[in-house]
């Protein structure tokens, strides 16, 4: 059983899962990093984009990679409304109020989706040919998902590292008061960051629709993995999100194949527990 092809296949499966985890965790980490707000509704942005791509394909035959792009402006509209109505008011609020507000939003979006489209499990019936590399089979859509994920990461690296607004985002995340004193309009940075997170999660939603089920509470299941990732990587750290996603995705896949599929569902719990007990600032976080 411990053959090379099983190992290779398992790692590829893990990376494919990690690419989805990254999409939700990046949104969580960006928003938390800049605003110190934990957005429990991040997964619902993903769910709505997943449904968007699903229906565009099912009803009008729109290629999901096209609708992935179309979901970005749609998610920005929704994200801006949510930012104005809810998130903006949570800055500096108690943790419990933040949780209640964003959790309420999550439940509301799930409820709307369930009312409109029922709780049925659906799949976006779109396939690409698989690739064979040696004895490892690479599912087409998963390979493209990994590619999309790399593209998102490259965009994010460029945006944060090479643009003025990106530098302001990093500065605001690093020291909000310092950024204000440098003349940064931190509220604009907040909105930009929130919308960036929303757009990334929307792209992730289409990726999700291509490999998972689409159903109203799909985001709620994923947000938990997102938490495991950002806790593992250190709240608010982008590099931490990348490594955390890979560690979680590959560990889950390994446990699934070599230990037990029942235990693989517990990996995320175990990660959260171990990190919080042994290194609360995460792998990449610095103690604040």
């Amino acid at each position: 059983m411990l053959s090379f092809e099983v190992l290779g296949q398992t790692i590829v499966n893990g990376i494919a899962a990690a690419s989805i985890y990254m999409m939700i965790s990046l949104g969580l980490a960006l928003v938390f990093g800049v605003m110190r707000v934990v957005n429990l509704a991040q997964g619902e942005f993903m769910m709505l984009a997943a449904f968007g791509s699903f229906w565009l394909f099912t009803l009008y035959g729109v290629d999901p990679y096209l609708s992935m792009v179309a979901m970005i402006p749609a998610s920005l509209l929704l994200g801006y409304a949510v930012y104005r109505l809810i998130i903006r008011r949570l800055l500096g609020a108690d943790d419990i109020n933040q949780f209640l507000a964003t959790f309420g939003l999550a439940l509301m979006l799930q409820g709307i989706a369930q009312y409109l489209w029922s709780a049925d499990l659906r799949r976006l019936p779109y396939v690409l040919p698989s690739l064979e590399v040696g004895d490892v089979t690479l599912a087409g859509v998963r390979v493209v998902n990994i590619g999309v994920c790399l593209a998102v990461l490259a965009f994010l690296a460029w945006f944060l590292g090479w643009t003025g607004i990106g530098r302001s985002v990093r500065a605001t995340a690093s020291n909000r008061m310092g950024a204000m004193l440098c003349g940064v309009d931190v509220r604009r940075v907040d909105a930009t960051t929130f919308l960036l997170g929303t757009a990334i999660s929307a792209v992730g939603g289409t990726m999700l629709a291509l490999v998972y089920f689409v159903y109203p509470s799909v985001g709620a299941g994923l947000i938990f993995k997102g938490f495991a990732v950002v806790i593992l990587g250190g709240m608010g750290s982008i590099a931490g999100v990348i490594v955390g996603s890979l560690v979680l995705g590959i560990t889950e896949a390994m446990v699934n194949v070599y230990v037990s599929s029942q235990l693989s569902a517990l990996v995320a719990f175990a990660v959260i527990f171990i990190v919080l007990v042994s290194r609360p600032q995460g792998l990449f976080g610095t103690a604040r």
């Binding site: 990093r170 500065a171 690093s174 020291n175 008061m177 310092g178 950024a179 004193l181 440098c182 940064v184």
Partner: peptide
């Protein structure tokens, strides 16, 4: 402009990025 108490630097950014943030306006 203010140089605040406790300096309020961007600790995890480079020295040059900190300076460039100064000319944000």
């Amino acid at each position: 402009l203010q140089v605040p108490e406790g300096r309020q630097l961007f600790a995890d950014m480079s020295v040059e990025d900190n300076l460039l943030m100064g000319s944000h306006s």
